[in-house]
Design a protein around this nucleic acid. Structure first.
Lengths: 148, 148
DNA sequence: CCACAACTATTGTATTATACAACTGTCTTA
DNA sequence: TAAGACAGTTGTATAATACAATAGTTGTGG
């Protein structure tokens, strides 16, 4: 068996499946994918400007600009011009945003608890470690591609 | 550290990243994602009808119907009405389709060889096994959701 | 046995996520 | 200080998807 080929295939299927599952998984009150990821980033890193988010997600600034509109409208993130460089727009998570993030996070944690109910702690930790390693590698590669 | 929560997050990032990487990874002659996955399925399972493919990928029949048009046009899959049930359309991979699939597969195998260059064989096998297990679980869950 | 309901696939239409282009306002530098 | 670089927004285009309407085919209950 060619492990690389199998892995490649499994990753392709995985991406497709996770993507497809988005709609059906999502409970009504949950944040949608882009909002969730943006709030996660702001929660993790503290306030960020639009371009930084675009960079993190490897998306066009215009895409982020559009994705933040509804979550700013909903009061989940605050938007203010940077005082030092007035071109930039600084985004920070609000208390309401934190609450919404926590709710969605909990809802998803539940889902994963169910999905991985029969996995040993060791398996879960292994999977997490390998996924993180793979993600780091992908991030690194994307950086390289930019600087070329 | 909450392993489930970390895992959930890592999966979300992973899906986003793999999705985003699609364009930049894809060499010019390679099959696009939908063509690649459809040819993989036909190669694996033998001839299938449109509805079966839709079921495998959890997509609407109309979506598959549209996705097969270009690959039929390119001669990579053959399309014929089922003789027994003339409503159905039977799809099978052609020799050209097999060749195209093999080429894309090899190109991706190369990419993965590079991405995972410093992984031990053991790590790769572990990751593959865990991914497969997770994918199986997702498939199973989607089945459950349908029958409800 | 046949009319009508169910099913398969296609095509029309709408939505969503995305990128690129044009533009505005701000900054930096020669 | 004028010219170019930069950050973000908004307009427009494209791609992937779902749902609705339709056409052709099959199965079934009176």
């Amino acid at each position: 068996m060619d492990v690389l080929q199998e892995l490649e295939r499994e990753v392709a299927v995985f991406a497709r499946r996770v993507e497809g599952a988005r709609q059906s998984w999502q409970r009504h009150q949950d944040l949608d994918r882009s909002a969730y990821l943006i709030l996660l980033a702001l929660d993790n890193n503290g306030p960020m400007v639009v371009g930084q988010l675009a960079n993190v997600f490897q998306l066009d600034i215009s895409t982020i600009s559009r994705q933040i509109a509804p979550i700013v409208g909903a009061g989940l993130v605050a938007k203010e011009r940077d005082e030092i460089d007035k071109r930039q727009v600084r985004l920070s998570i609000t208390p309401e945003g934190s609450a919404a993030l926590e709710a969605t996070r909990e809802s998803r944690r539940q889902l994963y608890a169910e999905l991985l109910a029969d996995w040993s702690d060791d398996d879960k930790e292994q999977f997490l470690a390998l996924l993180q390693r793979f993600n780091d590698r992908l991030r690194q590669r994307q950086q390289e591609q930019e600087n070329r």
